[in-house]
Amino acid sequence: MKEPSVIRQAFLAAFPHTIPIFAGFWFLGLTYGIYMNASGFCFWYPMLMGLTIFAGSMEFVAVNLLLGAFNPLQALTMTLMINARHLFYGISMLDRYKNTGWKKFYLIFGMCDESFSINYTANIPDNVDKGWFMFFVTFLNHCYWVFGATLGGIFGSLLTINTKGLDFVMTAMFVVIFLEQWLKEKSHISAYLGLGLSLLCLLVFGTDRFIIPSMLAILGTLTLLRNPIEKGGETL
């Protein structure tokens, strides 16, 4: 029976990758819990919503949806629009999540921005089980988020440490992940397109509605440039 040591090894390999998320989610989850608390919801709400929705930005929007008039269809369409980027993650992870057994369902369920980014870019050592590694990255991130949201919901109003600027940990992490991908790939055309088109859409459409246009622009340009990009070489 090698199973327990395989799991332990995967946990030990996965944990260091999630430390930045621990800092980020603890803070963001806490902020979310405080926000829910201030909006008049008891800690059960952030806790259960963190557990079941597990999509940070959507949960902040959910607070407004819960405070407004009852409109389930609007809640659904808004969620689809805000979370449409997950479609891209799924397409990128089709191969990587193959052969992970029962864990596959949970890996897809918990595929937030951070879990996707780590699981996509991490160099998993050959002697570590990939399925369990990705499982622990996803699971630990999920725990941090629920933990932060619950604590924020309970103790939020009592917090006095100056944490201003701590949310930059997420930006820093995405910069590092972008850079890691950059150092691995031969052609940077897709990276330039992602930065450039998103920035352009942000300027044109504004902060609240630039994600969908950015995605369409990226998808359209990658489709049009398929031949030159594929000739340009392998990314990994």
């Binding site: 990128s92 996509y120 950059w182 992602g194 920035l199 990226i218 990658l222 990314t235």
Partner: peptide, 25 residues
């Protein structure tokens, strides 16, 4: 093939999008 191509080249663009998303404000 087209979806495999997207799966391979989308992530770099998506990481760029996520950086812009973090800096949107």
């Amino acid at each position: 093939q087209y979806v495999r191509y997207l799966g391979k080249f989308l992530p770099s663009a998506v990481f760029g999008l996520l950086i812009i998303y973090c800096l949107k404000n």
